[in-house]
């Protein structure tokens, strides 16, 4: 298994506060990594550093060997990124927005049209192609963001809460989509819905207060608590760390 994403000692400090504290892991092709943690644990910050949106204070991140700081454009070419909240330009039509993203990614003419059409088909957006994004429901907006991340069929996908705000049917569709793409890609999905980990992830990392507190398969993770429920494991892991990390953070 070759690692498509490598993260070594990644750290982000905001003033005296350490949001992400020396995180290291790598993700290979065929893996779906669930990135778990309470709100404010550093999930989005880690993903933003990986996408090259935030500068790490320390450490490095590589996508297919391209360092996200020294070679950001090459790294981003291999990456599909869905930012938290799936932001898109409200006044643009769905087709117009995807076409813009495809153009920035270097596609022109027929190829661009084909890429946009394929991404809309994958995410079920054909029916709203001409609608301005601002008129869409939350679930459709999220799918527009997802379509943008899938346009160029990237080997690495980083999705920050892809199912947040979706109804159960839409959640199921997104999970099916992730599972279908999984064999060919390295996928990192952040979430705080634990059933999702069971449903789509081959591996889960739990972070709390900026540190990795567990890195295992969902089944191994479940065995960490006598009840065998991911819920209880999650609570036990993240509470313990939050309690011990508090004095350290103040110092």
């Amino acid at each position: 298994m070759t690692a498509l994403v490598e993260i070594e000692g990644l750290t982000k400090r905001f003033g005296g506060f350490t949001a992400v504290d020396h995180i290291s892991f790598s993700v290979g092709r065929g893996e779906v990594l669930g990135f778990l943690g309470p709100n404010g644990a550093g999930k989005s910050t880690t993903m933003r550093m990986l996408a090259g949106f935030m500068e790490p204070s320390e450490g490095r991140a590589r996508i297919l060997g391209h360092d996200v700081r020294s070679d950001p454009i090459a790294a981003r070419r291999e990456l599909g990124f869905l930012p938290e909240g799936a932001p898109t330009y409200p006044e643009m039509s769905v087709g117009g927005f995807l076409s813009f993203a495809a153009a920035v990614r270097g596609y022109g003419g027929r190829e661009r049209a084909a890429r946009v059409a394929a991404a809309m088909e994958l995410t079920g957006l054909e029916g709203v192609r001409l609608q301005p994004v601002e008129t869409l429901s939350k679930g459709f907006k999220r799918r527009v963001g997802l379509a943008q991340a899938l346009l160029h069929d990237p080997p690495v996908l980083v999705l920050d809460e892809p199912t947040d705000g979706l109804d159960p049917n839409q959640k199921h569709e997104v999970r099916t989509l992730i599972t279908r793409m999984a064999p060919h890609k390295a996928i990192i999905v952040s979430t705080h819905i634990l059933e999702e980990v069971d449903a789509v992830c081959t591996r889960a990392i739990v972070i709390a207060a900026g540190r990795i507190v567990a890195d295992a398969t969902p089944a191994q993770l479940a065995r960490l608590h006598p009840s065998g429920k991911l819920d209880d494991v999650f609570r036990a892991l993240t509470h313990a760390t939050a309690a011990t990390a508090q004095p350290a953070r103040a110092a």
Partner: peptide, 14 residues
């Protein structure tokens, strides 16, 4: 304000 800066600046452009 819209957060689209995160989308724009994680596309392959400087």
């Amino acid at each position: 304000r819209l957060g689209t800066i995160e989308m724009l600046l994680t596309l392959p452009l400087t």
